[in-house]
């Protein structure tokens, strides 16, 4: 089964993290795919790249970047893109993703996924740059909805409206981070279910699941815990509404052993299978 870009549903994967290298290399666990953080492997010729090579020999790999800075007003970094291209070819990346955000301007990089105003002008800017990136990489690039802690007064459209239109104009799809939807919904007071419902069916190529931390006045996307029940419920709704797609479980702080992280990915598989069975029964 492939999607409109001819890409397969890769299944239920886990983020490739340093603390799990020994476990992965010694046991080669039954994981559907691994997602590697692109920038961790761009400027290294040492052990990390050697390990990614070995992983890529046995598992499908997708690359997830944090430095594309698609919304910045700085020129695109072609040196960076050339390195992403080389890495993607080297590990036969099934696809490449990054975020709808900007990470710096005026030649500087603050290494954060900063929010954008959702206006017609910004939409045209991002769509133009995304098409250039995809032409350069000769492959589709899918953007992830960010978790955000502020909104711009100038915004004239909602985030799902912006993303839907971006998909149309750039001919691309989405990496839908369900936890980010939940985090932004709490921080900005919108209904996360309505957000999901406003996205186009058939455009989600991959889902992300993660945990967050409640800070009282806002919630932070910390990737430090299991997803809460509300996020699982939202994921189930997204799969039902937008379709099943490769799902990855992210854990980046206080990372537990590999089996614990993998178990969360398998939970997503069980959930999606249940939804699929219900759909078949109804049909």
């Amino acid at each position: 089964m492939t999607n409109r870009w001819g890409l397969p549903h890769l299944g239920y994967g886990v983020g490739l993290r340093t603390v799990h290298y020994a476990e992965i290399l010694s046991r080669w666990p039954a994981v559907d795919f691994f997602e590697a953080i692109t920038e961790n492997f761009l400027d290294t010729g040492g052990r990390p790249l050697h390990i990614l090579d070995r992983v890529a020999e046995r598992y499908p790999v997708v690359l997830h970047g944090v430095s594309l800075s698609i919304g910045s007003t700085d020129p695109l970094d072609l040196d960076y893109l050339a390195k992403v291209n080389r890495l993607a070819r080297r590990v036969k990346a099934r696809w490449v993703t990054d975020h709808l955000c900007w990470t710096g301007v005026a030649g500087k990089n603050v290494h954060d996924l900063l929010p954008l105003p959702y206006t017609e002008g910004v939409l045209a800017h991002v769509a133009r740059r995304l098409r250039t990136v995809m032409d350069f990489l000769e492959r589709p690039v899918f953007l992830e909805n960010p978790s955000t802690y502020l909104q711009f007064t100038q915004s004239t459209m909602t985030e799902p409206e912006f993303l839907s239109e971006l998909c149309e104009r750039a001919g691309t799809g989405l990496l839908l981070d369900v936890n980010n939807v939940y985090v932004s919904a709490v921080n900005h007071g919108f209904d996360p279910v309505s957000y999901i419902d406003a996205l186009p069916r058939g455009r989600v190529v991959q889902y992300h699941l993660a945990g967050h931390t409640d800070k009282g006045t806002h919630v932070l996307d910390t990737h430090s815990t299991r997803p809460r029940d509300e996020v699982w419920d939202l994921y189930a709704h997204a799969v039902e509404r937008l379709g099943e797609a490769a799902t990855l479980y992210e854990w980046d702080e206080d990372i537990p052993d590999f089996a614990t992280v993998h178990a969360e990915a398998l939970k997503a598989r069980g959930l999606a299978a249940g939804i699929h069975r219900e759909e078949v029964a109804v049909a």
Binding site: H111, L150, Q151, N187, T217, H218
Partner: peptide, 30 residues
């Protein structure tokens, strides 16, 4: 206030502060 919206719980400066606080933490960790 023409640039960033306040939320029900946080002022404009407090919302920006979430990013500002994370910046130095991230630099320190790196």
């Amino acid at each position: 206030s023409e640039v960033v919206l306040a939320s029900g719980h946080l002022t404009v400066a407090e919302r920006l502060g979430i990013y500002q606080e994370m910046y130095l933490l991230r630099m320190r960790d790196a």
